[in-house]
Simulated assay, not measured.
Amino acid sequence: MKRIMQLFSVILILLSSTQVSAQVQWLEKFDLTQYENKVVYLDFWASWCGPCRKSFPWLNEMQAKYQDQGLVIIGINLDRDIKNANNFLNTFPANFRLYSDPQGLLATNYKVVGMPSSYLFSGDGELEESHIGFKKSKQKAYEASIVKLLQQLPNKQSKD
């Protein structure tokens, strides 16, 4: 009986180590057109990406700070095995939407050449800017670009 309890404990530990925070929002499909009149920040990332570890806290901060003004952040994960992404998220949680692209189809469409790669879209769906990598020294510039596009959104009479 003691051996069974030990085995059960090990199984529980293994299961809990692969679970991800309840806040993770994996999207079933990827469709930018559903975010009309929103500023969309796409961020391509993978579990093996060192700079992604630095960008996630900033992305969480931007989502919390500007979501009520119309910002939508979507992290596009490129891991071939979702378990790797989930393990990453256990350590570096994402409080923004996520989409899994294990075949890299979106990465090919967006011509991603480095990680992370980010794309900023205006409220009318136009690509306004993109950058490769994440540099803490450029966080203010990244944020200023977001704020500029948010200010261009039409005023809304009611909250979504």
Rank of each mutant, 00 (worst) to 15 (best):
residue 130 S to Y: 12
residue 86 N to Q: 13
residue 19 Q to N: 11
residue 42 L to C: 08
residue 122 S to D: 15
residue 89 L to R: 04
residue 132 I to C: 11
residue 62 M to F: 12
residue 126 E to I: 13
residue 131 H to V: 13
residue 122 S to M: 09
residue 79 D to K: 10
residue 66 Y to C: 09
residue 14 L to D: 04
residue 83 K to G: 12
residue 146 I to F: 08
residue 114 G to L: 02
residue 48 W to Y: 06
residue 9 S to D: 04
residue 137 S to F: 03
residue 25 Q to V: 07
residue 110 Y to C: 01
residue 11 I to T: 13
residue 33 T to G: 11
residue 53 R to H: 06
residue 92 F to K: 06
residue 89 L to D: 07
residue 26 W to T: 01
residue 33 T to W: 11
residue 35 Y to V: 02
residue 17 S to T: 09
residue 78 L to D: 01
residue 101 D to N: 00
residue 14 L to N: 05
residue 39 V to C: 07
residue 16 S to Q: 05
residue 151 Q to S: 15
residue 138 K to T: 13
residue 3 R to T: 07
residue 3 R to D: 08
residue 160 D to W: 03
residue 134 F to A: 07
residue 20 V to P: 00
residue 59 L to I: 13
residue 148 K to C: 14
residue 145 S to F: 02
residue 120 L to G: 04
residue 108 T to H: 06
residue 120 L to V: 04
residue 24 V to A: 10
residue 107 A to R: 00
residue 11 I to G: 09
residue 160 D to G: 02
residue 156 K to Q: 11
residue 99 Y to Q: 03
residue 50 G to I: 10
residue 54 K to C: 06
residue 97 R to F: 08
residue 14 L to R: 05
residue 94 A to S: 06
residue 105 L to A: 11
residue 26 W to C: 00
residue 81 D to C: 03
residue 64 A to D: 15
residue 66 Y to F: 15
residue 21 S to H: 10
residue 108 T to I: 06
residue 151 Q to A: 10
residue 106 L to H: 01
residue 126 E to C: 08
residue 87 N to A: 13
residue 157 Q to T: 14
residue 123 G to V: 05
residue 72 V to A: 11
residue 110 Y to M: 00
residue 52 C to F: 04
residue 128 E to F: 09
residue 28 E to A: 11
residue 149 L to M: 01
residue 1 M to W: 14
residue 113 V to Y: 10
residue 115 M to H: 07
residue 153 L to P: 04
residue 29 K to F: 08
residue 18 T to S: 05
residue 108 T to Q: 06
residue 45 W to S: 04
residue 21 S to A: 12
residue 86 N to G: 12
residue 63 Q to V: 15
residue 71 L to D: 01
residue 112 V to S: 01
residue 126 E to Q: 14
residue 44 F to S: 00
residue 49 C to M: 15
residue 85 A to W: 03
residue 82 I to A: 13
residue 155 N to G: 11
residue 119 Y to K: 11
residue 140 K to V: 09
residue 56 F to T: 06
residue 87 N to K: 13
residue 97 R to W: 11
residue 22 A to W: 07
residue 119 Y to T: 12
residue 104 G to Y: 01
residue 134 F to S: 05
residue 67 Q to N: 13
residue 4 I to N: 11
residue 104 G to Q: 02
residue 9 S to T: 08
residue 158 S to P: 12
residue 106 L to V: 02
residue 131 H to L: 15
residue 54 K to Y: 11
residue 41 Y to M: 03
residue 16 S to H: 04
residue 121 F to W: 07
residue 90 N to P: 15
residue 43 D to C: 05
residue 16 S to F: 06
residue 3 R to H: 07
residue 138 K to S: 12
residue 16 S to A: 08
residue 62 M to A: 15
residue 91 T to S: 14
residue 22 A to I: 14
residue 98 L to Y: 10
residue 110 Y to I: 01
residue 84 N to K: 05
residue 76 I to R: 01
residue 137 S to P: 03
residue 87 N to T: 12
residue 153 L to T: 07
residue 94 A to R: 00
residue 35 Y to C: 02
residue 116 P to N: 04
residue 47 S to K: 01
residue 156 K to M: 06
residue 2 K to Y: 13
